[in-house]
Design a protein around this nucleic acid. Structure first.
Lengths: 212, 212
DNA sequence: GATAAGTCGTGATTAAATTCACAATTATAT
DNA sequence: ATATAATTGTGAATTTAATCACGACTTATC
């Protein structure tokens, strides 16, 4: 709650580290070096050491990092034990993909409910998550802190306003609309079309080594 | 093909600018200032001016930017007229979401085909895109430059190797696996679980203004 | 033990991106 | 015409992130 000194770039990599440490732990590995981890997560080893160092001296010189210790440390740091409740708004293919994704494996987040405007979907549940009608948003969403917005762009702004009014803390916005929220709400945009176009642009303008 | 001087951060924002300029054009707007655009795309206005300036002096002082001119310029710059062929690997919910997304509206990319291991899906088509069996990958994928990888993590590495062998240029990887490719292939990772966890981490550790 | 090999943590450096701030120019109003 | 307001383009400053490079320490080997 106080670690405001951790760079944002580092914070974004933490969940990635956490997942790979989990993998290593399941594989029975006891120790890992920044070099090994670097190859697995595709992040420079000096960057990994720097990232870890913001949390203190977690490793041992000449040895590396103890997987179990590091994992336990990150579990605490990423608040793995404190649950964040999530709602999916819009159960099209993208929303449904989230519902099937088993987030609880590595995460401190739980998808509690989903909303949709289609009466045929309402009342059913997907992967154990109940689907309510979007009209019931205000009534049902109590306690949810994060919304994953997977609705058509045309209704994104209206639903965002309702989420804000109901006191949501964060929104993961998958719609192409750039939604407007008060400063008290954090929004991360993931724009699939932009990601694809950006990749294409890089391919055309930033040639890579062609010898293998 | 030669504009290697454009910062990567700028390149990533270009598709976003392009889409919003398109919106403005459809709304009949003739001019736009960096300030207006800033509010729409949520990027600082000085950053927008700086981004545009890499392409020369596109605006007029005291006036702003001519929407039609700017749009035409970006169309050329983003190679809107030169088509990049795309394949979807894995037609689960996420892959299907892409198939339904009408990329052709703003884009220079076309989804030509999809692959899946499930015989029930093979032979059908979704949104006009044919679905082939994954065993036919090598035979069918000719001419495709970009693959969108939406398969289970367990098969990600194997399929990646086949894509590399077949000469793919870019991969948009939605699996949690950090795939390994030769330097000649560009990979962008979009890791949905990491995005969600990072948002949660920011909410807990980087408090926002709570007064509205 | 003594020596060699491995690895961290970090000061210093470099690179990349953002933001400030203002002269120059254009548009608009009177 | 003239004055006022708007807005760009960019040099300079700042901020943020990545990388280099090495001393200090640990482990493994003989």
């Amino acid at each position: 709650m106080d670690q405001n000194k951790i760079p944002q770039a580092t914070a974004k990599r933490l969940p990635l580290y956490y997942r790979f440490l989990n993998n290593l732990h399941h594989q029975g590995k006891l120790r890992v070096s920044s070099k090994e981890l670097s190859e697995a997560v595709k992040v420079d080893s000096a960057t990994i050491r720097r990232d870890f160092s913001y949390f203190g001296a977690l490793g041992k010189k000449g040895y590396g990092y103890n997987v179990e210790y590091l994992l336990g440390f990150f579990r605490k740091t990423l608040d793995q034990d404190e649950l964040t409740e999530v709602a999916i708004i819009g159960t099209g293919n993208l929303g449904t993909a989230f519902l099937h994704y088993n987030f609880m494996k590595n995460n401190n987040t739980k998808i509690m409910m989903a909303f949709d405007a289609n009466p045929e979907k309402v009342g059913k549940d997907i992967g154990g998550v109940p689907i309510y009608h979007i009209d019931e948003l205000e009534e049902k969403i109590n306690g949810v802190q994060v919304a994953i917005l997977t609705v058509p762009a045309s209704v994104a702004e209206g639903i965002t306003n309702r989420l804000v009014d109901v006191g949501i803390s964060g929104i993961l916005n998958f719609t192409p609309a750039r939604i407007t929220v008060p400063d008290s709400v954090r929004v991360h945009h993931i724009d699939l079309a932009v990601e694809l176009q950006a990749l294409v642009y890089f391919l055309k303008h930033y040639p890579l080594n062609t010898e293998e």
